[in-house]
Design a protein around this nucleic acid. Structure first.
Lengths: 209, 209
DNA sequence: CAGTGTGAAGTTGTTCACAGCA
DNA sequence: TGCTGTGAACAACTTCACACTG
């Protein structure tokens, strides 16, 4: 499989890739120069064939009987995942989770920067959290730049749809939805749901059965 | 399907259920008494048959041509997901994400309470964040209670495995892993990976293709 | 006839089996 | 022999089709 292939990369694969990347960076710190998918699979608790399949979506080729060159694999993965070019986004809702995202240094490391935040709480407007200024949501139209396509949704559930509508009306093309409601958007807008409470449900179920 | 069935509830179903719950609570606030799976599916952008299938894992039965009684469905879902009985957990790593979880009021609403937090940063030991005291990780063995089975992992990636090992050695049965490394644990321990960066990879890929 | 509930078909993702290579 | 890479078998999840019900 190569990059000319038009089929979409499976979402599970995309979600595993950042884990490989983190694993590889740690391995590199520990002095590893070369690593096999067998090794990666073993260390990460993933099926080794799965690792090979996942990596085959990138352009990298492994050396038979040796494995993959760590440095090359890292840079290839970063390019593939677009973690080495900076994407910008807006944050809507500077509550506890929103604030955490503003303070999180990890995001820039993965090629993402929150360039402005929006809230409706008068006490928060004008504040600067982690280098990002907070504006009133009503000022979004005025403040926004057309080249920012990603919006983070961390508002209370009651306002999720409403704020999502504002994003869509103003040209946002991808919404990273941290709320526990499913929002309705046009087909052209991509939504990634990341509700942590959803995972809590899984934990409770597996723990008590 | 009923509760005597031994097959596991599919993870995708478990992850959708909290969304149904949130949707239903909002609908209830808006005065809805009865709702059909067709309606839920339409409003949430989920296939209506999927909604029916998902709900059939609980004990609730819908009325033909009418739908489900909202209040009953809410309480049935809450019971099923164990959101109305309090589970306790420990948090490891009081960084930006860990702190956000400590400050988040939403968790208790979903039946989860962080009863103690652990970190290695001397500046943080002894602090009280959102009602939770922070102890040194080395004191875990001394502080822990045997009935707490859930551990939240929000430490830097370099220490993830090490801290996970401490948890496992001290009787933790489920680890909610927010780091971007896959940790290795015995089969008896359940791990739920919730790395937000993984979702970033999906957003970038879908946005740029 | 609109809605539930379910078995069957289809799709997607994972695991297995093995060919090729150093 | 140990590893990559791939096509085939398998499992999981989703969507479709339809019988049933008030």
């Amino acid at each position: 499989m190569n990059k000319i292939d038009t089929t979409l990369v499976p979402e599970p694969t995309l979600r595993r890739m950042p884990c490989y990347l983190t694993y590889l960076k740690l391995a590199q710190q520990n002095g590893a120069k070369v690593v096999s998918s067998t090794q990666i699979g073993h260390d990460m608790g993933v099926d080794p064939t799965q690792v090979t399949k996942d990596l085959s979506y990138t352009c990298i080729v492994g050396k038979t009987r040796v494995g993959y060159e760590v440095e090359l694999l890292i840079s290839e993965l970063e390019t593939f995942l677009r973690f080495n070019t900076m994407d910008c986004g807006y944050l809507f809702g500077a509550g506890s989770l929103g604030t955490a995202l503003l303070l999180d240094h990890g995001l820039t490391q993965f090629g993402f920067e929150i360039v402005a935040a929006f809230d409706v709480n008068p006490d928060k407007i004008g504040l600067n959290i982690g280098g990002t200024t907070i504006y009133h949501t009503n000022d979004f139209k005025r403040v926004k730049h057309d080249d920012v396509k990603i919006g983070i949704l961390t508002v209370p559930v009651e306002h999720a749809q409403e704020v999502a509508d504002i994003m869509v009306d103003n040209g946002i093309e991808a919404i990273w939805n941290f709320t526990s409601v499913r929002i309705k958007v046009p087909d052209s807008v991509f939504v990634q749901n990341t509700s942590i409470y959803a995972h809590l449900a899984v934990i409770f179920n597996r723990l008590h059965s």
